[in-house]
Simulated assay, not measured.
Amino acid sequence: MANIRKRGPGQWQAQVRKRGYPTQTKTFGSEQDALDWATVIEAEMIRRVFVSRSEAEATLIRDLLQRYESEVLPTKRGRASDRSRLKTLNHAFGTFRLASLTSAQIARFRDQRLQVVGPQTVVHELNLLNRVLRAATMDWGIALPTALPTSLVRKPKKPRGRDRRVTEEEIQRILAATESTELRAVVTIAVETAMRRNEITSLAWEHVDLKRKIAHLPKTKTDTPRKVPLSSAAMAALQSLQARSEGPVFTMRAESMSQAFERSCEPHRANVANVRFHDLRHEATSRLFERGLSVMEVAAITGHKTLEMLKRYTHLRAEDLVKKLG
């Protein structure tokens, strides 16, 4: 039952009591606002769909972002990138209360960000906001009376993936252009195994079985360990280095690895244009299919979780398909 009473000049308190529900109390600036609120709350209780808004109304988005950063982010691999995204979200929504956050506000944020950054960046930011809100409702017990507002916002279309194939002739020019034995091994392993850059830099000798020709990756981007078979070329690249019983295979860090690769591609060196280190993973994936491996076999090597993502990394040449058709 709803009860409205005046608490002082310009203050009206609404209170709703119903068996089976905690008493709900809120103060308003007018009697009509108090009555409207009480009517809605009481109707929801009667229909058995009431969810208390008190904690959501008292919680700032800024507090949720800070809690996510301190409790959840340390367990994530992409914490450096996500920490920067949290700052962006805090600037946009930090002063909002959780209960007041709407899909329309998030959509405006999306549209404004698209004027500054690319669609993929905005998708990452929206996904992070969704994870924060899910943590608040599922793990921290802060109830929302409606669906997550992020679930009602259309995400921008991702840009078309790169389809740059790196030819064997270009790879040989890159290998010849560098004086670094380590970079030559890195490029060869990237093309032969489809390992990600961070997987290559974290490769340890204790996880490389030269007899069985297998490299074990205990930590990957998808948090799923996998074993990667090593081709003859990949084996030769590893054997060109000074093998040890343990420790990192490569001394290069991920960023310096990409920089060294790009320097080797410069016009006065290998003269290979419009190529990035990550293109080697695309090239390797395509080559695995061209060698006749099945979808499941390729996915087991590359670590792709979905067929859609595997397709984004596969660029088969029409001329090669013609040869198969006969």
Rank of each mutant, 00 (worst) to 15 (best):
A2Q: 02
K6E: 04
G8Y: 06
Q15R: 10
K18R: 15
R19T: 10
D33W: 13
A38W: 01
I46D: 03
R48F: 02
A58K: 15
L60T: 05
D63E: 15
D63F: 14
S84Y: 04
R85Y: 08
R85T: 05
L86W: 04
L89Q: 06
A92H: 11
G94P: 08
T102L: 01
Q112D: 12
Q112E: 15
L114N: 01
Q115R: 12
G118E: 01
V122R: 00
E125P: 07
V132H: 14
T137D: 08
L152D: 03
P156M: 01
R162L: 00
Q172G: 05
L175I: 04
T178F: 04
T178M: 03
L183Q: 09
L183W: 11
V186N: 08
R196W: 03
I200N: 05
L203I: 04
W205T: 02
H207P: 01
A215S: 08
T220Q: 09
L230I: 08
L238T: 14
S240D: 13
Q242P: 09
T251N: 03
E255Y: 15
A260M: 14
F261I: 06
F261L: 09
C265F: 14
V272G: 11
T285C: 10
L293Y: 11
M296R: 13
A300I: 11
I301D: 14
L310D: 00
K311I: 01
H315E: 03
R317N: 07
A318V: 00
L321H: 00
